[in-house]
């Protein structure tokens, strides 16, 4: 029995307790958002608050991805703190490859109006050839980076279809786990990278300067 969760779980009877544990394990380990219809502890607001408090113990938070689906992700303050820790960030080559995947599978289709909502998941794969041409990495470095990104659930591989649909890489299941603030931040970073001189980029920089001043 884990002492960590005991104070939160103690008030509940056996059945409720099992439901809370199942919901906690599901949102932490599932490949994608889990439907609340399958988990009573996600369906009932009071129990859901307890699941959220269990997650908070490890710096996690409950994220609603659609009206009846839930998953967990890092809390915004925790994410910010961990991003400053070199042991917690990806190697630079992996980040470069991930950005290329995001540009080709999300940013470009979104600019073309093919993707409309603010999700970071996409059915449009970034072709391996494109990654090879743009990444300035050797093939073995690129493949090693893709292997690590795949293992981390940050990219997914799409096999080329028989109907000549091209294969490649799309954002992986971890992109379900972004909070609204993290999604916005990613969007802004991509604008700053792709169009640093654009009016939109200037507005983002101005707002961030403002936010920093407020903190001080």
């Amino acid at each position: 029995m884990s002492e960590l969760f005991e104070p939160l779980l103690r008030p509940y009877d056996e059945k409720r307790r099992a439901e809370l544990v199942a919901a906690y394990m599901a949102v932490e380990h599932a490949a994608g958002p889990v439907p609340e219809v399958r988990f009573p502890a996600l369906r009932e607001p009071a129990l859901r608050r307890t699941v959220a408090r269990m997650l908070e113990l490890s710096g996690r938070t409950l994220i609603r991805t659609s009206p009846a689906h839930w998953i967990s992700g890092y809390d915004d303050a925790v994410r910010e703190a961990l991003a400053g820790d070199p042991a917690c960030v990806l190697p630079i080559a992996d980040r470069a490859v991930l950005v290329l995947v995001l540009i080709h599978s999300v940013a470009i289709p979104r600019a073309e109006g093919l993707l409309t909502d603010d999700s970071w998941l996409s059915p449009y794969p970034a072709p391996l050839e494109e990654l090879r041409r743009r990444s300035q990495l050797t093939i073995s470095e690129l493949e090693a980076a893709l292997r690590r990104l795949r293992a981390a659930g940050l990219v997914g591989q799409v096999k080329a279809g028989a109907d000549e649909a091209s294969g490649g890489y799309v954002p992986g299941p971890q992109f379900h786990r972004l909070t609204e603030a993290a999604r916005r931040r990613l969007q802004e970073e991509l604008i700053l990278a792709a169009g640093p001189d654009s009016p939109l980029a200037a507005a983002i920089r101005a707002r961030r300067r403002g936010a920093r001043k407020e903190r001080v």
């Binding site: 029995m1 884990s2 779980l9 544990v21 380990h29």
Partner: peptide
Amino acid sequence: WPDGATPAVLEEYQTLPMP
């Protein structure tokens, strides 16, 4: 993990784990 649960509990709830 709470109460000795493991990610194997996902199977009981027909929920896919990370691929």
